[in-house]
């Protein structure tokens, strides 16, 4: 592999741009696809691989090609730089999520409390509009504060996010659903929200709650449908 190729792959990754890495297994030639200059059948194979998120070896024109789908990593947008977020950010990062922390309150969302984290000190609905969650993004609200959680969920419900979760008791959640329904969301749309958030593993401490949330995220992405 050329260092130039490696750097191009890293660039695509940090820009969340999907690319396919293609490697000719007989002569070692390598390409980033799709590429207008590349043969049509290779571009087709790359597009199919990216759509299916499948990596593997294909025979293309009598040659063996390794085609790797490099879709952007799954992303987790957290609303609320609260105590549970301090356990959730490292655990989600370890699990392979790119984590974005949203909290307009700089007393909570700051590098002292979250060293190295990507933090947006913006109102949650504005942040969600900017971040535009797609099918590889999950949104979890953690503040318990309707002023922050509700606008985030209201906006996230209009997106293709694969998972929406809201921290809070059953009672809190029922009240939240009623408020969101008043904003015009149908019961079917509202059923997309996992609340209370997380798999029921009897979690008590912040790290345990973080674990239950990650477990539910993994189960939603990979578990039996």
């Amino acid at each position: 592999m050329n260092l130039t190729t490696l750097h191009a792959l890293q660039q695509a990754q940090s820009a969340r741009r999907p690319v396919a890495f293609a490697k000719n297994l007989s002569d070692g030639a390598e390409l980033l696809l799709p590429d207008d200059a590349a043969p049509e059948n290779l571009n087709e194979a790359a597009k199919t691989a990216l759509a299916a998120d499948k990596t593997g070896t294909h025979t293309i024109g009598n040659e063996s090609w390794f085609i790797e789908a490099r879709n952007p990593p799954p992303r987790l947008i957290l609303i609320g730089a609260v105590h549970i977020a301090q356990a959730l950010v490292p655990l989600a990062t370890l699990t392979g999520f790119e984590v974005v922390l949203v909290d307009p309150r700089t007393a909570f969302g700051n590098q002292d409390r979250f060293p190295g984290a990507k933090i947006i000190n913006d109102w949650p609905d504005d942040a969600i509009k900017t971040l535009r969650p797609e099918i590889r993004t999950a949104v979890v609200t953690l503040t318990h504060d309707p002023k922050l959680d509700d606008p985030a969920l209201d906006e996230a419900l209009k997106s293709d996010a694969f998972y929406l979760g809201a921290l809070g008791s059953r009672k809190t959640h029922a009240a939240r659903l009623a408020r969101l329904a008043a904003l015009g969301h149908s019961p079917e749309t509202l059923s997309r929200i996992y609340g209370p958030v997380g798999l029921n593993i009897g979690a008590v401490t912040a790290p345990e709650i973080a674990l239950s949330i990650i477990a539910e995220l993994v189960s939603t992405r990979r578990g039996p449908k």
């Binding site: 260092l3 792959l9 890293q10 990754q13 790797e68 990593p73 370890l94 392979g96």
Partner: peptide, 13 residues
């Protein structure tokens, strides 16, 4: 792509 471990970054370094 789901590898949390970034081998490319390590290799580049």
């Amino acid at each position: 792509m789901d590898n949390a471990e970034d081998i490319f970054a390590t290799a580049a370094a």
